[in-house]
Amino acid sequence: MRIAIMGAAGKAGALIAREALSRGHDITGFGRSAKPGVDVVKDALDLTAEDLADVDVVVDALGFFNPENLDLHTTAALHLADLLAGADARLLIVGGAGSLYVDAERTTPLLETSDFPDAFVPLARAQAAQLAASRERTDAAWTFISPAADFQADGEREGGYVLAGDLLETGADGTSRISYADYAIAVVDEAERAEHVGEWISVHAA
């Protein structure tokens, strides 16, 4: 497959690219500056449909962390959706865990619980807005993939994951965790299988 990765130089993007390359896929990395793994230096908001004309899957692994640009999570995802609207190519969005519900009634997201770190609330709300905006799109083949609550950048690659939905789930040890490397496996699996188009899914360690 031909996979375009936005934010290919970031921690998540780089591991997704590595996982896809290990399976023989053709990867094009996009980034805002020239770095290892970046084939095309271009701001995501400056991309055109022509830039993505030959790809099968676009992975939005863009990260915005400064308070003044958190809204770019939504802006960039919607721009990519615009570019892919009506096309066969799919959009996979690297989401956050803060939106996952902690109750069966689906009234309380993780980010509104007392245990959620205050420092991460603005980012979680921005990613929740990104999710809400994506779910409104019926013209683009998107999938929003949330990681577990403890998203471990340097965590060990265990080689698998448990697929879940919009509820926060835990593994056998009672924790909600997943490494970036195992999350990358889930992203590339979805790229290959296209089993959750137009859905919000989550993944965690077994």
Results as ranks from 00 to 15, higher is better:
residue 1 M to A: 14
residue 2 R to C: 06
residue 4 A to Y: 01
residue 4 A to T: 02
residue 10 G to Q: 04
residue 18 R to A: 15
residue 20 A to D: 05
residue 21 L to W: 05
residue 21 L to D: 06
residue 23 R to H: 12
residue 23 R to Y: 08
residue 23 R to P: 10
residue 29 G to T: 00
residue 30 F to D: 00
residue 34 A to H: 02
residue 36 P to N: 04
residue 45 L to D: 08
residue 45 L to M: 14
residue 45 L to I: 05
residue 46 D to E: 15
residue 49 A to Q: 11
residue 52 L to G: 10
residue 52 L to K: 09
residue 52 L to F: 12
residue 56 D to I: 08
residue 56 D to R: 02
residue 58 V to Y: 01
residue 61 A to W: 11
residue 62 L to A: 13
residue 66 N to G: 15
residue 66 N to Q: 15
residue 70 L to Q: 09
residue 71 D to E: 14
residue 73 H to C: 02
residue 76 A to N: 06
residue 76 A to M: 04
residue 82 D to M: 04
residue 83 L to Y: 07
residue 87 A to K: 15
residue 90 R to V: 07
residue 97 A to E: 02
residue 98 G to K: 03
residue 100 L to D: 10
residue 100 L to V: 08
residue 102 V to L: 08
residue 103 D to G: 01
residue 107 T to L: 10
residue 113 T to F: 08
residue 114 S to G: 06
residue 116 F to Q: 09
residue 121 V to E: 11
residue 121 V to F: 05
residue 121 V to Q: 10
residue 127 Q to D: 07
residue 131 L to V: 12
residue 133 A to D: 11
residue 133 A to E: 10
residue 140 A to N: 01
residue 140 A to L: 02
residue 142 W to N: 08
residue 148 A to D: 04
residue 156 E to V: 10
residue 159 G to D: 00
residue 160 G to T: 04
residue 162 V to C: 14
residue 168 L to E: 10
residue 173 D to T: 11
residue 175 T to Y: 10
residue 175 T to V: 07
residue 175 T to S: 13
residue 176 S to Y: 09
residue 178 I to T: 07
residue 182 D to T: 09
residue 184 A to T: 12
residue 187 V to R: 14
residue 188 V to S: 03
residue 188 V to A: 06
residue 189 D to G: 09
residue 190 E to H: 13
residue 195 E to Q: 15
residue 197 V to L: 15
residue 200 W to L: 13
